[in-house]
């Protein structure tokens, strides 16, 4: 049971003041704390749990700058066996399709039964990479998994996975999918283990395979912003809509004013 799990390092923007860079192309990042995307953390835990049950090798993979190696180390500390870092300055500005293409290139030629991704990322929130990967690799896809088991089924040759996943209208359903397959993981699928500082330090010396665009056999024109077909025009805070009001003052004043307003407008 070999598993590849694709992860991403994202900024934790909670508590930070959101300041948009001049030019509207990005955020001031000074106050951000960085870490693994929450959904990806569940995906790594799911992969490691499957490995603990069935054996095999789990490979963690990310695409990003040098600092992003941090999330690979963390994945190794959680129990992943190998780490692959797709790192090339030319990757900068890639859209989801570009990221998926690079990942697909790195995945091809590896032996795997299951490809796991977080359902969505906490920053861009597109939820596209998993789907693109399935398309590029011609694999079946199950999205938003809330429970994941593998076993030998009656279907295909390489075993199957039983996946419970969310569908519209608040429903969930259980499907059986032939392996290899792509599964994107929803939060709450498991309880990710804690990674101690010591755990991270223990894998400080572990090897991380670094691959650039050339190593992946990709042309420069396909990479990063050059290859992006979705381009950012402007980033901005949504303007205050009609009827919206921001209350100001001390906490007590705000609460008092809010209660008054709710009374006045029939909210209470």
């Amino acid at each position: 049971m070999n598993i590849i799990v694709c992860i991403k390092r994202v900024a934790d923007t909670s508590e930070a003041e959101i300041v948009i860079q001049r030019g509207g192309q990005g955020l001031e990042e000074e106050d951000f704390a960085w870490g693994i995307n929450e959904w990806d953390n569940f995906a790594v835990e799911a992969a490691v749990q499957l490995k603990e049950q069935h054996g095999g090798v789990v490979t963690a993979m990310t695409l990003g700058g040098e600092d992003d190696e941090e999330v690979l180390r963390r994945a190794l500390a959680m129990g992943c066996d190998e780490a692959v870092h797709l790192c090339d300055e030319a990757f900068a500005g890639a859209d989801a399709w570009g990221i998926a293409k690079a990942l697909a290139a790195a995945v091809r030629g590896r032996s795997y039964d299951l490809l796991l991704c977080g359902a969505v990322s906490g920053d861009a929130g597109g939820g596209q990479v998993g789907g693109f990967l399935a398309g590029l690799l011609d694999l079946p896809l199950v999205a938003l998994a809330t429970c994941l088991e593998v076993g030998s089924g009656n279907g295909g040759t390489g075993g199957v996975a039983r996946v419970r996943h969310e569908v519209e209208s608040g429903l969930e359903r259980v499907v059986e999918v032939d392996l290899p397959a792509v599964v994107t993981v929803q939060t709450g699928i498991n309880e990710p283990r804690y990674v101690s500082i010591r755990g991270i330090r223990k894998v400080a010396g572990a090897e991380v395979q670094v691959l650039d665009g050339a190593a992946l056999g990709l042309q420069a024109a396909e990479l990063g912003s050059a290859g992006a077909r979705v381009r950012l025009e402007e980033l901005f805070l949504p303007p205050r809509g009609e009827g919206a009001e921001v209350l100001e003052g001390s906490d007590e004043e705000i609460v008092q004013r809010l209660v008054e307003m709710l009374h006045q407008r029939g909210g209470l």
Binding site: Y194, V195, S196, R198
Partner: peptide, 15 residues
């Protein structure tokens, strides 16, 4: 903690 078994509610504050 070394084994990663920590109450879920403590993970965020520790991070």
């Amino acid at each position: 903690v070394d084994d990663g078994r920590l109450p879920a509610s403590l993970q965020k504050p520790l991070a």
